[in-house]
């Protein structure tokens, strides 16, 4: 019997310590908004201000375009669903319509990033083909 009393006493002491440690155990329940606000500044998720985004100035991403234009637009107002095309092919002289430059094949600029490596890969592919053609292993 003493053993049980001692055990229960120990448990209550731990619970009491826990209550004292947290203090405000009778606090009003936190609202969702408050919880979200807190979570936003939770150090686990918060980014430090001095950290800069390496792609910030790349022009590729914009922090404001979380939702895309036309993403939650009713189908009837979506311009893509309106199949009335303006004008005829290769002719649009209306100054209000932006000029569209048609994309064409171009010769690769030798100053393109990694051109030397690309030439090397192509040369390697050529050597493999030449080797297989002259040696013809397995044929």
């Amino acid at each position: 019997m003493r053993k049980y009393i001692f055990f229960i006493t120990i448990i209550f002491i731990f619970i009491a310590q826990n209550v004292i440690a947290h203090g405000e155990h009778k606090k009003e329940p936190t609202s969702i908004a408050e919880a979200e606000e807190k979570s936003a500044i939770d150090p686990m998720y918060a980014t430090q201000e001095e950290e800069s985004d390496p792609l910030e100035n790349s022009g590729l991403f914009s922090p404001s375009d979380l939702f895309m234009e036309g993403e939650i637009v009713p189908a009837e107002s979506n311009p893509k669903s309106d199949m009335k095309m303006e004008g005829s092919h290769n002719e649009h002289n209306d100054p209000n319509i932006p000029k569209v430059v048609s994309a064409e094949h171009k010769t690769v600029d030798t100053s393109a990033k990694g051109y030397g490596m690309a030439a090397g890969i192509t040369l390697l592919a050529g050597l493999v083909f030449a080797g297989l053609t002259f040696i013809r292993p397995g044929e």
Binding site: M85, I97, S102, H105
Partner: peptide, 20 residues
Amino acid sequence: ALTITPPLGEEPVLGLEVTK
């Protein structure tokens, strides 16, 4: 791939029909 780049235009102008 080493000699000729594939065509790539800019973002589309909606409502126009000018390419092939």
